[in-house]
């Protein structure tokens, strides 16, 4: 499988502030790639560089095989971007907005009408076409932003916190459309999000901390590396739990014990079968991964 994005030694500073420090990573064609980090971690800077909207200080960035410095036009034809906030024209109708953006890619006339019809059906905004953008709700506007990004059939879709503030229905629709496009057209998706359950669906995840890569891998690899397993014990007394000799969190009608991994959980259960009569084991979630990696909450602060 070829790489859709190749970044090597990317650096970018704003004055004395180093926003991105020596980033090196790749995104494979067709994958859903999640790029996580706190505000100010360098996500938007990296996205703006990939989009050719911002110049880098050093390093190389290749998108769809095209170097962003030497072949910017090829890069721009290959990418579609959904920004955090809408960048479309509020006073104009949805149709006028899409028409002006499609023209940027040379899509006009019958070709434009056909593409808008297709996207309007896919994203369910046929009835919104003649309405001014500023009169639409947040969810409706988001659908138009996505349509704008997809107008020219990009090979790489960049979603910068696309679901922040959206209602569950619109979030579901958005992810359904993205999944359909990945399946039908092999679309590669580069996602930044604050919702860890969205990141958990990714094929590959990078966690950025203060401009550098703090962790990377598949969600499972990250969970195995950065979180433990949670065992929830039901129908046991506090005394029984104390016999395990591990710190336990008391829940409303259960106790929760955290162990380093599944092997440790198995060992514990086999050693105390009389206590483990009614229990469940859950792997740590992406929230735990993020908190552990960025070192803000667990296990002594500055990460493992």
């Amino acid at each position: 499988m070829t790489n859709m994005i190749d970044i090597c030694g990317l650096c970018k500073s704003y004055g004395d502030v180093q926003a991105v420090r020596d980033l090196t990573f790749s995104v494979r064609e067709g994958e859903l790639f999640a790029f996580l980090g706190e505000n100010g971690a360098g996500k938007s800077t990296t996205i703006n560089i990939i989009c050719t909207a911002l110049a880098k200080d050093s390093g190389t960035v290749t998108v769809c095989g095209a170097d962003i410095d030497r072949e910017a036009e090829r890069v721009r034809k290959a990418i579609g971007v959904v920004y955090q906030g809408s960048r479309l024209d509020g006073p104009l109708s949805v149709w006028d907005n899409l028409e002006s953006r499609a023209a940027l890619y040379g899509i006009t006339g019958a070709e434009f009408r056909a593409r808008v019809a297709e996207l309007a059906e896919r994203l369910d905004f046929q009835e919104l076409l003649r309405r001014p953008l500023r009169k639409l709700s947040g969810g409706q506007r988001r659908r138009i932003d996505i349509a704008r990004a997809l107008l020219h059939r990009p090979r790489l879709l960049i979603l910068d916190e696309p679901t922040t503030g959206l209602d569950p229905q619109t979030r579901k629709l958005l992810w359904q459309v993205v999944e359909d496009l990945r399946r039908e057209e092999g679309l590669t998706v580069f996602l930044t999000t604050h919702y860890m359950e969205e990141a958990a669906q990714a094929d590959s995840v990078i966690i950025l901390d203060r401009g550098s890569i703090a962790a990377q891998g598949t969600p499972l690899e990250l969970k195995n590396a950065w979180t433990g397993d949670h065992i929830t014990l039901y129908n046991v007394s506090a005394g029984e739990v104390a016999r395990l000799g591990l710190p336990a969190e008391e829940l409303r009608d259960a106790f929760r014990i955290t162990v380093p991994n599944t092997a440790a959980a198995t060992e514990l259960i086999l050693a105390h079968p009389e206590i483990f009569r009614d229990y469940e084991i859950i792997k740590g979630c992406m929230d735990d991964v993020f908190l552990n990696v960025t070192g803000r909450n667990l296990e002594g602060g500055e990460g493992k």
Binding site: C51, R76, V81, L88, D89, R101, R148
Partner: peptide, 13 residues
């Protein structure tokens, strides 16, 4: 000011 210029400039125009 509204960021629309960036949206226009990330296209091949």
């Amino acid at each position: 000011a509204l960021g629309t210029a960036t949206d226009l400039r990330v296209s091949p125009v």
